[in-house]
Amino acid sequence: MVRLADLPDYEREHLLAKNMPPLGPATWVASNKPLSELRIALVTTAGLHFRDDPTFEFTDATFRPISNDENANDLIMSHSSVNFDRTGFAEDVNLVYPIDRFKELEARGAIGSLANVHYSFMGAGLMPAEYQHSASQLAGMLKKDRVDAVFLTPV
């Protein structure tokens, strides 16, 4: 449905304003294992966290951990944008954070394993380069968790 031609002018312009050039020379890590051996973490920019966690600020490059063992149905959302639908996420956490689907893939051996911890950012109001520090921090944590690959979802 997000075909720009279908949107009102102001909404199209708002989304096109987010077009940015690449952050630098292309980065590429070639896969050296089959999918069935990859350890995967989920990372979303949907502004998710548990009720006891700090909410996200209006603009915020930090991230929140989501343990693989915790009940994802307890996640809430403190995203600052008002320009997307939240009713689908209220209905089914997997619509934004597909943790049950990945647990099913793990159970059937389609992927190697899931990370101990997944993560959420809140993608709004910042220039892409402002996530560099947090993303590098996150990379270190993912490596400690022996993660090979990340599956990213926006909102």
Binding site: L23, T45, A135, F151, L152, T153, P154, V155
Partner: peptide, 25 residues
């Protein structure tokens, strides 16, 4: 999301993901 993907891959972690706005990706 594009930025996180870029920086993680630069730090040697493979990424794949979903984009809702094709032009941005």
């Amino acid at each position: 999301m594009c930025a996180i993907s870029y920086y993680l891959e630069r730090d040697n972690i493979m990424t794949t993901g979903i984009s809702l706005v094709r032009e941005n990706a």
